[in-house]
């Protein structure tokens, strides 16, 4: 079986008549999580949207030797899942119906979800901890619960490439770790890979295998938190977040964490 791999080479994304992102090249290996980091408005979301073919760009973007630019919406939906910052569900429907939407790529036009698929959907909901919400109206959920519900929808798709745009932005401390562990677990279970935009570099350092740092329309650095030396990472992160200190800390259970501290305290 061939390896699942996303390769971007020399991608330029024009936006409002300038090349908003220039010469973006990186590779995402299977079983891995990659985070895109950068200041607000540096183009994290734009990059994700380009990969899932929603804005035009030049250069190569290949998934297992398939050029994603040439795929139809339906083909694309079978290859990758995209979680936007905020889901665009604007009319009331049940949480279960929202999750069942995840099966659309494999259903025919007039087909309705099978009993098996409904069971898979409720299993996904229990994985994200929303079992009690199954028949609730999606619109009445809190923002964090909505994000968990959309994650459940992504869980049922069985796609091998996940693009997640700040999937944790409305989650509390516990759920943030729970969601990222869940994603990591899914990646390993199904040989998939994930590309995430994250605001919190601390989370990215501990959960992701690769960090892509964007600054001034370019890739400023690509870091590998597991292998790169701390001083090097500290220097690269300081370039986008202002001067920071990177420390290794051991918790009570002897897990080693990377902790990023901003030096901008009063």
């Amino acid at each position: 079986m061939e390896e699942n791999r996303l390769i971007l080479s020399h991608v330029n994304i024009p936006l409002e008549e300038i090349d908003f992102l220039q010469d973006i090249s990186f590779t995402i290996e299977e079983n891995s999580m990659t985070a895109i980091l950068g200041a607000n408005g540096c183009g994290k979301t734009t990059l994700l949207r380009a990969i899932c073919n929603q804005i035009p760009f030049t250069g190569q973007c290949e998934w297992n030797n398939i050029s994603l630019q040439n795929c139809s919406a339906r083909e694309l939906s079978r290859l990758l899942s995209y979680i936007p910052q905020r889901s665009g569900i604007t009319i009331s429907m049940s949480v279960l119906d929202v999750v069942l939407m995840g099966f659309n790529p494999v259903l025919k036009l007039l087909e309705t979800p099978s009993k098996l698929q409904k069971e898979a959907a409720s299993k996904a909901l229990s994985m994200v901890g929303l079992t009690d919400f199954i028949s609730r109206d999606y619109l009445t959920l809190s923002e964090g619960e909505k994000q968990l519900c959309i994650l459940a929808r992504t869980l049922v798709t069985h796609t091998k490439l996940w693009l997640l745009d700040e999937p944790d932005s409305s989650l509390d401390f516990h759920n943030r770790y729970h969601m990222l562990s869940l994603i990591k677990q899914m990646m390993h279970q199904s040989d998939a890979c994930a590309l995430l935009c994250l605001h919190d570099p601390g989370l990215a350092l501990n959960f992701c295998d690769q960090l892509i740092l964007l600054k001034e329309h370019h890739v400023a650095a690509i870091l590998h938190p597991r292998t790169d030396p701390l001083p090097l990472m500290e220097k690269s992160l300081s370039a986008i977040y202002g001067s920071v200190t990177l420390k290794q800390i051991t918790d009570n259970k002897r897990n080693v964490h990377l902790v990023l501290l901003s030096e901008q305290l009063p």
Binding site: R49, A73, R74, L76, I89, T90, G102, N104, L107, L110
Partner: peptide
């Protein structure tokens, strides 16, 4: 009536619907 599921999918915002494989 047959298209009910698709009609529900159309209520989702354009880009999200597209990534769900809906030929919007």
């Amino acid at each position: 009536l047959l298209l009910y599921r698709q009609i529900l999918l159309l209520s989702v915002e354009e880009e999200e619907a597209k990534t769900l494989g809906v030929p919007t």
